[in-house]
Design a protein around this nucleic acid. Structure first.
Lengths: 136, 136
DNA sequence: CGATAATCTACAAAAACTATAGGATAAACG
DNA sequence: CGTTTATCCTATAGTTTTTGTAGATTATCG
């Protein structure tokens, strides 16, 4: 299942992209427009900022804004930051590889074999989509 | 992330398929061979049986065995039973559709748009793989 | 300065996952 | 029969992850 964190994060990014301008948008405005708990959204926007997707401005007239063009924001990187590894198993992860304790030979592991294909197909989708592609 | 339940369930199915015969295989043997907690595996095999993948036999010489040919067991059905819906969001699920509370218009939702593609690509992988394909 | 809005840490509630316990049931076998 | 074997079944406990909430702090604007 997709976490609410990812869902809300994606919606927030989409909203910021759809606004068009680079003017800061307040958390409250995003939260209200997308029906998200403001405090929860707050923490999500914070991680998006720390990972280079958003800029922020404090105080009156402050808020969050996109740092890059929507068509430069790949879903691969967004998903990795919000949802974590794209692979469903660490042993097929490109960026977060880890060997399974229980598995003596990855080459013969059915789970490995299947999840490798799932990872590749998901990766292709995320690579083909930028934030710009998700705006209707 | 793939749950351990799914991982272990897949491994158990693979093991039963690789054995080849339709002779019952004891839980203990599967658990030992695949490095799985026996008691946990027990509950997993039970749900696989209840969902029509396995047959079982009690008492001496008992155990679990495949009911169908490995090439007739599609990963779509295995994954749905073990892991749940293939879609990452209920609003793009074929078998478990549910509308989002927070989303006024699915057609305009960026999450919906992206997850629809992810579902389709995952579905294609699962449809192309039977249990027989996962045996090396 | 006073109001506004993001920042940050810590923590709490809820849900999901990963098992474990222990008896019930059924089959095989002598 | 009765004993042994192995699955069946329910309940529950422990852990981790998710989903938030609280409250004080810091920066900015006018």
């Amino acid at each position: 299942m997709l976490s609410k964190k990812t869902k809300y994060g994606l919606k927030a990014l989409t909203y910021l992209a759809s606004v068009g301008t680079r003017e800061p948008v307040q958390i409250a405005e995003i939260a209200e427009h997308e029906n998200i708990s403001q405090k929860f959204l707050e923490s999500i926007l914070l991680t998006l900022r720390r990972n280079g997707f958003l800029g922020s401005k404090k105080g009156k007239g402050g808020g969050y804004y996109l740092i890059k063009e929507p068509n430069e924001i790949l879903m691969t990187s967004v998903m990795r930051v919000l949802e974590g590894p794209i692979a469903m198993v660490p042993c097929v992860s490109l960026n977060f590889y880890e060997k399974c304790d229980d598995c003596p030979d990855e080459g013969k592991c059915s789970v490995h074999k299947l999840m490798l294909q799932v990872r590749d197909s998901a990766l292709e989708v995320y690579r083909q989509n930028t934030l710009a592609d998700l705006i209707s």
